[in-house]
Structure formats: C-alpha cells, structure tokens
Amino acid sequence: MKMLHRHIAFACLALLLALLTACSREEPVHHIQLLTFGTIVDVTLYGVEADRARQVFAAVEEDFKNMHAAWHAWKPGPLARVNELLATGEAFSAPPSVLPLIVRSQELARRSGGLFNPAIGRLLALWGFQSDERPPGPPPAPDAIAALVAARPSMDDLIVDGVTVRSTNPAVRLDFGAMAKGYGVDLVIDHLRQMGIQNAIVNAGGNLRAIGRRGDRPWRIGIRNPRGPGIIASVEVQDDESVITSGDYERYFEYEGVRYHHILDPRTGYPTQGVAAVTVIHDNATEADVASTALLIAGVERWHETARALGIKQVMLITSDGTIHMSPAMAERIRFETEQPPHVIRSDPL
C-alpha cells in the first residue's frame, strides 16, 4: 500500500513538472507592431528562426511604407496627382501603383450597387475625414453635403483604356480608405509567400488575413465588441482566410454631444446609422474589406442582398442596439465570448 502511495505521489509530481515546463517553453512565434499605413500594423509569424523573422519584418515594413506613400488620399504623392489630373477631365497615364486599385475598385463598386464608392473623396474631405487631426467644429453645412451628393461621383465616371484614364465627372476624387487596408494585406501576404513564409497573420488596423496555422492549432482571432470593452466573439481560422471588421467606432468626432463617424453613405452624404459593426470572413482581404464597408452602409434591410452580389458567404452584422444578424455559414463557426449569449438572428443562407 505504501508503495502505491509513493507511485501516486511521484506521478503527481511528474505531471506538475510537465505542466510547468510546458508553460515556459519558447515557441517559434515572432511578432512585430508597426505604426505605418496610417494605422497599427501587426505581423505574426510562426515556425521561422528569429533572424529570418527580422528580415521578413523589415521587408514587410518597407512594403507598407511604399503603399502608404502611393495611396495616401490627401498628402502629395501618386494618388494626389491622379486626383488633380482627374479633375481636369483630360486623359492621362495613370501611375502603375494606382491603376490596379482603380480597375479593381470599379468592379467592386459596381457589384456593391455603388454602396462602396471610392469616388467620394470630396465628401470625405468636406467632413474632415481626410486629415490626420480633424480640427474641432460642427459638421459641414447641409447645402454643401447635398451639392456633393447631387454631383453623383461614381467609379463608372472613369474611362480606363489600357493605362490611360480620364474622368467624365469633375466631382470624382478618389479615396481608397474602404479598400486599401485589405488590398495592402493581400499584397503583403503574397510577398510573405514568395519569401517562403507559410504561417502568418498580417493585421492592418484590425483588418487581417491569416495563412497556415500556429503550430499544432489553428490561428485564433478575436472580434472586438463594438459597444463595450473587450472581445465579443472569436473564430479559429486556418489555411487562408481574412477576417475584416468595419465599425462606426474606428474614427469619429463629436460635436455638441452628437457623434459623427467616418463611414459615409454615398446616397445621403451623412454617416450611416443603425449598424455598429460588420465582420466578414472571406478568402480575399480586398473583397472582405470592401464588403464590410458596403454591408454596413446597406444596413439591416439590405445587407443580405449586397453580400450575395459581392459573393460573400460569412457575415456578422451588429446593430446599434446590440442585435446580431448572422449568415448560417458564420453562425456555424463563431464562438461568443460574452458572459451572456447575445440575441442572434440567423439569416437565410447566402
């Protein structure tokens, strides 16, 4: 009997030691946080040596710096030059850093029924969202907003012929804010793969794409609660998926107690109302980024048809009062992290 006790005691000790060593073991995970691309960029790599990770991080930082310079909507650079030339109505050769975004966004704007509209740069500037620091003050005058909406700037106003572009509407001013982060993440993921990286997460301001796994488990992604602290839900991703959220809390200003956020409805010229956040899971980050914005603008009534038109299957939409709408494909895999399960409305399949 005494022998048995000794055995059990020994087994307990061994188990404890095993647990403790499991905690302290270094894992081949490398992580960097960069302030670039106008946001926080997080890159996580799994399964590479520290030296290699440093080289890869340097290359990624360079990529984001270049894209930031090329696509900046209000500082001098290729996109600013394009906007000057579009305003003339004359044909010009578009810079190679900007042309692919024009072509891609034309197609996506059309499929979204114009809810995703990167041609409304003037409206964004009028609201003060084309500045690093909006000076405090009232929202723009209703007349000025109405005039810009009536001019109907649209991606269809751009005639692209090879590398030549011209605008048939002087009201068009491009701002790729609703697409550039996803597009940039896609390009960086391609670059990582070229560098031989198989397991990684690239997260630009909350818009992320994950490839591969974190060793023996999938990557775990948290989704921010739009109306409170912390995380509302989580999802495990692997192989290659983008998880992208648009929310009314990301950029905003307040005036006399009213909050004005940065996602403008191109049909009205005002910030959208009714939806706090939309999360989209999709393979491609560009399309997920565009869709999250377009669905937020579409609202509770029209998000379903808009998601269909954009070929998106996994959607979670959280209204301002906290009701959650989800497509079945999303509902099957998402896990709520709140203490009490929220009120969820399942939609028809997408």
């Binding site: 905690c23 946080q33 997080d42 996580t44 997460i201 997260n203 301001g205 909350g206 818009n207 992320l208 994950a210 974190r214 990557w219 775990r220 992604i221 948290g222 989704i223 921010r224 995380i231 989580s234 998880v243 992208i244 959220t245 929310g247 990301e250 999360t279």
Partner: peptide, 15 residues
C-alpha cells in the same frame, strides 16, 4: 500599447 496575455488567448484581433 499592446496587451500580452500569458497564454495569448487571441493571436490577432479584428476591429
């Protein structure tokens, strides 16, 4: 600033 959890419950956050 970034919070580092002991077991990093989430590898990344979508917001």
């Amino acid at each position: 600033v970034q919070v580092i959890g002991r077991d990093r419950r989430y590898d990344s956050i979508s917001f």
